[in-house]
Design a protein around this nucleic acid. Structure first.
Lengths: 236, 236
DNA sequence: CAAATTACAATCTATGAAATCTGTAACTTC
DNA sequence: GAAGTTACAGATTTCATAGATTGTAATTTG
């Protein structure tokens, strides 16, 4: 009378709960996924799930967090690859875009859940965004080290890339662009070409006043420069 | 028993209906603005308003359209100004951003209405977006003519600018950024610096294969080049 | 007869009671 | 006693219906 369906295939862990919940969201959508049904599918009572997740919404958050981790891992792979920075950046952003597009087209219910989280959980989005942005910062850092790109402040540069690419990566925009049949990949490539051209030609974000220091910062570690940029960017 | 409040101050035209409706939306929000109340405020029966607008939602659309026209006029002013293209572009986008921010902070109900339209009326947004993008294209065109910027295809370049600036101009993002206290203007300036640097250094969007033709297009009219870019951008 | 009103059908929204779902705590089992 | 169940209070959602709003057409008015 313990696990009719759950015990052999589903050992009842945080991860199996997550998988079962995800399967239900896929089939019935977020609104019609309740903890009682998820628990029943695992052959346990709904209260048992609260051992692993403090609330239903924590489960939903976890589903989206998993997707975000996937994307961050994907982005990290591109950063650690060798090759021209412009191509790495284009590949990174295109891959990120394709993930969202695939979710929108082939996994609509998960996409919808993701979209809700984007609207309702600015904290989660901010964390995700910072994660991706710092990966982009590292990509730029490396290009600067190699002398491929000339950028004053990789933190600011990464922010520019993030903002310019948001249109192609934000779930709501992806949905809109794909629905409208826009030539997204061509447009994204044009954006990356433009950014890369600027970085290649050299961009200066810091005020020309602190010029002597800029040289030093360029020569030394990138982390410090990035740090100062982030710090100085919290006012207004 | 005809016009108690309306007749003298409000001659009952499309424009006075619009103003009255807008005032009601400002005070009570879109949801609590009904045509009966708007008509009563003008001293007429609600059916009289249908002479000017075919439906309640047409009135709401018109309120947003008016705001959009305002923004387009503002943008057009910057395009027709003389001066360095980078500064014109920065001023244009900063002004556009500030309009949205002011609406968000000082005219919240209108901002909310605008936001709903952005979500529910992709057609209106597409028209607005094309309008602004073509103004940006003209700005770029002029810079190219003066030899200030070197761009292959001003239509594509304008699209890149539009996508990069969307984060700063889209009502939902403006709300988010302002709420989070982000250093928006600094970030927007960094984005514009980057784009300007690229255009200054020269960007090529067309495939290097059709190189001989590219030269010709550069020398001749911009409209044709822009046109071809738009046309070739409708597939994928 | 142009402009507006009144009257009304169709649609949409607000309301509240019934049902469902979430989250917790006391209880059971291995 | 760790893992899980049952039982239950409080919150949330559903559903039916009353009420309000929209849009139109016939009618009145200057």
């Amino acid at each position: 009378m313990s696990g009719m369906r759950g015990s052999p295939s589903k050992p009842l862990t945080a991860s199996t709960v997550l998988e079962t919940a995800k399967a239900h969201v896929r089939r019935f959508g977020e609104a019609k996924t309740n903890v009682v049904d998820v628990a029943r599918a695992m052959g346990v009572s709904h209260a048992a799930l609260y051992r692993f997740y403090p609330s239903r919404s924590a489960i939903m958050d976890a589903i989206v967090e998993e997707a975000m981790n996937d994307e961050a891992r994907l982005a990290a792979e591109h950063v650690e690859t060798d090759g021209p920075a412009a191509e790495k950046l284009a590949a990174l952003l295109l891959d990120l875009h394709r993930r969202k597009r695939e979710r929108f087209l082939g996994d609509r219910e998960i996409h919808d859940l993701y979209r809700r989280i984007v609207v309702e959980r600015p904290d989660m989005i901010a964390a995700y965004s910072e994660r991706i942005t710092s990966l982009v910062a590292r990509l730029i850092d490396k290009a600067v080290s190699k002398g491929e790109w000339k950028v004053d402040d990789t933190g600011v540069a990464a922010g520019v890339v993030r903002d310019a690419a948001t249109t192609y990566v934000h779930p709501a925009f992806v949905a809109q662009l794909v629905t409208a049949g826009a030539p997204v990949e061509t447009m994204l490539r044009a954006t990356v070409s433009t950014l890369a051209r600027a970085f290649e030609a050299g961009v200066r974000y810091k005020s020309p006043a602190a010029d002597g220091q800029t040289r030093q910062l360029r020569a030394r570690g990138r982390a410090a420069a990035t740090q100062s940029a982030r710090a100085s960017a919290k006012q207004e």
